[in-house]
Every structure is written in structure tokens, then in C-alpha cells.
Simulated assay, not measured.
Amino acid sequence: MELRGFDDGYGVQVADWALNEKEVALLSGRVVYPFPEELRANWRTADADIHSYLLFDGERPVGYGEVWLDDEEDEVELARIIVDPKVRGRGIGGELVRALLGPALDAGYSEVFLRVRPENAPAIRAYHRSGFVDVPAALMEEWNDGQPVPYRWMRYAGEQVGVGELRG
């Protein structure tokens, strides 16, 4: 598996991985299904603090995720993580998260966070295996204030097997 910078030529393919309204909302912020055609060409933000990546198995993209840098908060958030539905349940999500930790940790910020829908048990398991732990309940409640849905917020607690190799 190899993590590469996102190429807009894969936008339609990645958008098609969203199988329902919740998944479309996580990628685009719009609660619709299927992914709106008018957004397919330019659904990613042009924000310089957001870095988009694809995880490839050979020449086939199998996962997408973003690394959001926040200078003001001195933190990084892993976001918009999605795996090709054809390969879900095979550990690709965990591989993608561990790969995204490479650029996230290399950015040099003090903390790395992510948020996940509480009902997404497979993703939560993958995040735990990748070294993420829940933030304290009070902080989770604070961060969910004003969010469109309540999330389970997690923070990276330290290197796990294989992550150090990604940084080197």
C-alpha cells in the first residue's frame, strides 16, 4: 500500500464510494444522495491547510483521507476518511489511518485528532488499533456543541506498530 497526494482525476471515483446520505455528508458537508453531480468536479476545498491523500493498492485507489492543519490550535485533524466499499472489512481503513499519521505527525503539531460517528463501530476499532483514544467526555461535549451531529472525538495517544516506519 502506498499513500499519494490526491489527484482531482479521482474525484468522481472517490465520490462514488459514498453509499448513503451520511457518507456523502462526511465528504461534502451536504446531506444528499447520491453525491451531487455539480460538486463532483470540485468537491474538495482549495484551503491550503487541508492536504488530501489517496491510499493505493498497486495502481488502484482504495482509500481517501484528509489531513487538516490548524496553526491557531497547534493541532491536526484527520478527516473525511473513506474506503472503497469493494474492500471494506479487510483492514484497509486502519492502513489508511496509519498512513495518514505520517504526514500528520511530520507537520509537527502538538496533537492529532479525528472525529467519527458513534455508530461506526468498524472505524472506531480501526482508530483504536491505530493508537487513538477517546477525548474526555467533557471535552467531547464541548467540541460537539454546534456540530450538525454528535461525534465521537478521538486523539492520537502515541505510536503503534508500523507508524514509526511511516515517519522515517
Rank of each mutant, 00 (worst) to 15 (best):
G65P: 05
G65Q: 07
G65I: 06
E66I: 01
E66L: 03
V67L: 04
W68I: 12
L69V: 08
L69G: 00
D70T: 01
D71E: 15
D71H: 11
E72D: 09
E72P: 00
E73M: 06
E73W: 04
D74H: 08
D74K: 07
E75V: 03
E75I: 02
E75M: 14
V76D: 01
V76M: 03
E77C: 01
E77K: 01
E77G: 00
L78S: 01
A79K: 05
A79N: 04
A79Q: 03
R80F: 04
R80G: 07
R80L: 10
R80V: 02
I81W: 02
I81R: 02
I82C: 11
I82R: 01
V83P: 12
D84S: 14
P85E: 14
P85I: 10
K86Q: 14
K86D: 14
K86S: 14
K86E: 15
K86A: 15
V87W: 08
V87A: 08
V87D: 06
R88W: 05
R88E: 13
R88P: 04
R88N: 05
G89F: 07
G89W: 10
R90G: 02
R90D: 06
G91Q: 08
G91I: 06
G91T: 05
I92K: 04
I92H: 03
G93P: 09
G93R: 09
G94Q: 15
E95W: 12
E95S: 15
E95A: 13
E95M: 14
L96V: 06
V97T: 15
V97S: 05
V97A: 09
V97I: 15
R98I: 05
A99N: 10
A99S: 15
A99W: 08
G102M: 02
P103Y: 09
P103T: 09
A104F: 12
L105M: 14
D106H: 11
D106R: 15
D106V: 12
D106L: 15
A107Y: 13
A107K: 07
A107T: 04
A107I: 06
G108S: 10
G108R: 10
G108Y: 12
Y109Q: 07
S110L: 05
S110D: 13
E111K: 15
E111G: 00
E111A: 12
V112G: 09
V112P: 08
F113S: 02
F113V: 04
F113D: 00
R115M: 06
R115V: 00
R115K: 14
R115F: 11
V116G: 09
R117E: 10
R117Q: 12
R117S: 03
R117N: 07
P118S: 01
E119N: 03
E119L: 04
N120P: 00
N120V: 03
A121Y: 00
A121S: 07
A121H: 02
A123Q: 07
A123S: 13
A123T: 11
I124W: 00
R125N: 07
A126W: 04
Y127K: 02
H128F: 06
H128E: 14
H128M: 05
R129N: 13
R129K: 15
R129M: 03
S130G: 11
S130N: 05
G131R: 11
G131M: 11
G131D: 05
F132W: 08
F132V: 06
V133Q: 08
V133N: 00
D134R: 13
V135C: 03
V135M: 04
P136K: 08
A137Y: 07
A137D: 12
A137I: 09
A137C: 00
A138Y: 08
A138T: 09
A138W: 06
A138H: 08
L139Q: 14
L139W: 06
